[in-house]
């Protein structure tokens, strides 16, 4: 008991949520390894393969008569589908979070449907609805606006597949923020539209941006649904389809060059997101501290 008279020696205590050092290093090691094997290695392999014949060859193959239209089509589709989905996503999230109505849970499930349905099935649905042998499809073709095997069909398929991204990001944010700020704006005399532009939109802009970027990455990369809808026609071939075609035709270098470009666009999307987040870090944290 003589110990008690001395000053207690400094002891390190571990926080209840902290793991033992061994467990910590094992976990970190495992995650790093998984990331390296599953994410970084394939990504690096693509760029190595794409540039195996040098920058110039890769560059040239991308600007070939075969490749360029696919790149243009992919960018066009994303440019149409992403804004459409941003608008739909905002509308859906608004509707779900700001109003109480019957069947709300069902509607939320419905928004998730594109996540669970195979994209091929989605593509087939569009063919079934708008194909040339259906009444609607025939009428549209007769009036010079074919949907299947053409741009509108690809856009529809892409919109379907990427539908949940924006809404999914927005719904939790908007639920958490509640309606009070909008109500405050209304009592101060602002119209509904002004309230949306000056209060709702600024409050959800980061979630919205995140959803838009995710949905953009997915829109450019979609294969299954677009494959069905495009009928693999030359005039309706997007980048992912074209990559597969090149690959099957033993044009490996061109296939990888394009795959490299697609991966680069995806990386660019992520970088853009990170850059914006950092740039607005002050504002972001001001929002998060909340009140």
């Amino acid at each position: 008991m003589s110990d008690l008279s001395h000053a207690t020696p400094a002891r390190r205590f571990r926080a209840p949520t902290e793991e033992a050092p061994l467990a910590r290093w094992l976990l970190i090691g495992f995650v790093t390894l998984a990331l390296a094997v599953l994410v970084f290695a394939p990504l690096i392999a693509i760029f190595v393969e794409a540039l195996s014949k040098g920058w110039e060859a890769a560059w040239k193959s991308l600007f070939s008569r075969e490749a360029l239209p696919a790149i243009k089509l992919t960018l066009t589709v994303a440019a149409i589908a992403v804004p459409l989905n941003a608008a739909f996503g905002i509308a859906a999230a608004w509707f779900i979070t700001k109003f109480d109505f019957r069947g709300k849970a069902f509607l939320i499930t419905l928004i998730d449907l594109p996540f669970s349905v195979s994209p091929v099935v989605a593509g087939l649905c569009i063919v079934l609805l708008f194909g040339a042998n259906t009444a609607i499809g025939a009428w549209l073709v007769a009036h010079g606006f074919p949907i299947v095997f053409a741009l509108p069909g690809i856009v529809l398929a892409t919109v379907f597949v990427t539908f949940p991204f924006v809404a999914r990001e927005l719904i939790p944010v908007m639920i958490e923020q509640g309606r009070a700020e909008e109500e405050a704006a209304l009592t101060l005399g602002a119209s509904g539209w002004r309230t949306f532009l000056t209060v709702t939109l600024p409050n959800i802009r980061w979630a919205l941006l995140y959803g838009v970027l995710l949905s953009n990455a997915r829109a450019m990369g979609e294969f299954g649904a677009v494959a069905v809808v495009s009928g693999r026609r030359e005039s309706a071939t997007t980048m992912p389809l074209k990559i597969e075609m090149f690959y099957n035709e033993y044009q490996g270098a061109t296939a990888f060059a394009m795959a490299g470009l697609l991966a680069f666009l995806a990386l660019l999307t992520l970088l853009l997101k990170t850059w914006l987040e950092n740039r607005h870090a002050g504002e972001l944290s001001a929002n998060r501290r909340g009140h």
Binding site: A184, A185, N203, H291
Partner: peptide
Amino acid sequence: AGFVFQSYALFRHMTVFENIAYGLRA
């Protein structure tokens, strides 16, 4: 009606000045 909400519902992305000016600017 000048309405003060239970948790105040100040516009979190605006400064105090902008919050107070909101109704006039609207």
